[in-house]
Design a protein around this nucleic acid. Structure first.
Lengths: 109, 109
DNA sequence: TGTTTATTGCACCTTTTGGTCAACCATTCA
DNA sequence: TGAATGGTTGACCAAAAGGTGCAATAAACA
């Protein structure tokens, strides 16, 4: 799922037009259109700030949108800063190890 | 340990002056000074790009510097993008759970 | 058919970011 | 004492990011 796609999906789901979203966020319609189509003339995604307001307007999960926009949510960044070595280690694991880790977390111990 | 402190420590360790580092990286001495003192008049840390060159010059661990500068290294970002849910879940864990996780990773299974 | 909604390109504008420059201070040392 | 050498600071500047506004285009639909 792409970022723009997700935004469009949510917008439609809420029964909103690009114009109404644009007005609510005080940006132009063309900007919303470009966001949904991934056509921002440089950089691929809107700013974290914009995503914040957008998530609010669409009643969406902000962190999910941030992740789709390849940005690291503050909640995760904070943890990484607190335990850099843990995260470096996890990042170094291969797919299988990650799978095992994920399922072990989902297992009620 | 603060970012600027670490940079200074490494620079001294390598027997370099601010000027020599500045020259190597083609920036001004004053910039290096501000970096070491955390006095960049906005934003707290230099750009990731700059840190990259700096790490190279100081023969430092780039990711460590990035983490000190509250930036998420590419290696970790990539993993987060691949498995957002896993990382969100880990980020939500409390200290104890993180401790247990960390030690379980260090345990040879 | 005309109205609403969305798409896209392009030139433009403002704010933020990433620096520079000049002047200054402190230390050392000939 | 004065002149290198190394470091600090504040005002300022240039480039990049983040967006605007318009115009032309198209599709939906009532």
């Amino acid at each position: 799922m792409q970022f723009g796609q997700k935004v469009r999906e949510l917008r439609i789901l809420r029964g909103l037009t690009q114009r109404s979203v644009a007005d609510s966020l005080s940006v132009s319609v063309s900007y919303i259109s470009k966001v949904e189509n991934g056509k921002l003339h440089f950089g691929d995604y809107p700013s974290a700030n914009f995503i914040h307001k957008l998530a609010d307007e669409l009643k969406a999960d902000e962190d999910e949108l941030l992740l789709l926009a390849d940005k690291v949510p503050a909640s995760i960044r904070q943890r990484i800063r607190q335990r850099p070595e843990l995260f470096r280690q996890i990042a170094k694991m291969d797919k299988h190890a990650l799978d095992r880790l994920e399922s072990s977390l989902n297992t009620v111990n």
